[in-house]
Design a protein around this nucleic acid. Sequence first.
DNA 1: ATTAAGTACGACCGGTCGTACTATTTGCCA
DNA 2: TGGCAAATAGTACGACCGGTCGTACTTAAT
Lengths: 215, 215
Amino acid sequence: MGMATTNPATRDRILEHGLDLLSAVGLSGVTLGVLAADVGMSKSGLFAHFRSKEAVQLALLRQMAQLANAVVVAPALEQPPGLARLTTLVENWLGWSRKAGLRGGCPVAAALFELDDIDGDVRAEVVAMEGRWRELLKALVCEAVASRELSVDLDVDQFVWELCGIYLSHHASSRFLRDPGADRRALTAFEALLRRAQGPWPRGPSPPLSAPEEQ
Amino acid sequence: MGMATTNPATRDRILEHGLDLLSAVGLSGVTLGVLAADVGMSKSGLFAHFRSKEAVQLALLRQMAQLANAVVVAPALEQPPGLARLTTLVENWLGWSRKAGLRGGCPVAAALFELDDIDGDVRAEVVAMEGRWRELLKALVCEAVASRELSVDLDVDQFVWELCGIYLSHHASSRFLRDPGADRRALTAFEALLRRAQGPWPRGPSPPLSAPEEQ
DNA sequence: ATTAAGTACGACCGGTCGTACTATTTGCCA
DNA sequence: TGGCAAATAGTACGACCGGTCGTACTTAAT
């Protein structure tokens, strides 16, 4: 049974270009014709690799998850569990699509608002991805609680919820409003969130954790 | 039968249906054919009221601003300046599109992530609207500072930035993830934001976290 | 050498898109 | 009651949509 000319290579090439396109124009903007032209092949030739447009969209989403895992999660996991790992993840998370070489924003963030009311397999996949992502965040926060760097009384779900708000606000201000101060705003908000999570009741001087860093 | 209602009535009817449609399917989902069918008239008959699709989109955005002003801003302005006015605005803001009778989410929130990288007049209009909205938020926060209900040392822009994050996180969790606890999470986050804004280092007796409160 | 599978192409399907141009209806006023 | 301008409908267009078809070429297993 033959594999022929360039099976996995072409498919990967499609997904690579497609992910870049997706980040720039969103799910509804990725059409078979535009993607094929971008890759440099015919629409039907591209179509042969997937059996439907929906399959293309799902493959692109999984491709994105893989990329995000490599550039955001993996480096964080090299840090020791606890605050160091968590802050590394957040620093890599903010604006990750640009750092990963994509020309647009985070496709999941866009899908969160694009697929509000549009049911289907694609929506379900994004729901699952977002759920897994928040579970990961929660796990890292719990590690920081276990290491006593965050308070044992912390409402972890609330922490994660607010952290997602910081990410979304950063996305909106940096990518849509194009505010150059977005990184600083996000970092300030994250530090405040951490400080609040370090103890419901006060301690002496607030430790200046979270090193300078960030452009 | 033919009551024919002159120009403005039909146009208003188009915008009314169109705004509902916009909130459900986003800017790219509002097509002339679908909108015309929704209103119950022909595509060309509808088209005659606007000279282009872009004009329809811009009119819909302005229609939305008008509605939001009526259901979110106006009630808040009946409150006295300060914390009362600010919290009333925030309470009306969260999930406002549903309260206003729209079947979908906030069109501007969606546009924030849909028009990331798509330049043009529509994007410019959304940028302007979002800018005006944040100025309004800032003004109300400043009123609360003036009335000494918030600290004079408060970084107002940072406050507004984080408040927008709460709004976006609430939108994502309530409309996309369909988490029934979204309202509570948002309110908790807002209370924490307020507490932090009430004094740079005030925390006298450990305050009992969030008061019972909440609708 | 034959066969079968994989890959890619160009032509094409019915449909919808936005947008023109033309008809027809409608309400109002002389 | 006739006429008129505005409002709506009708029709047509080129472009693009997702998707199918027939076909040719390449490769791998028989």
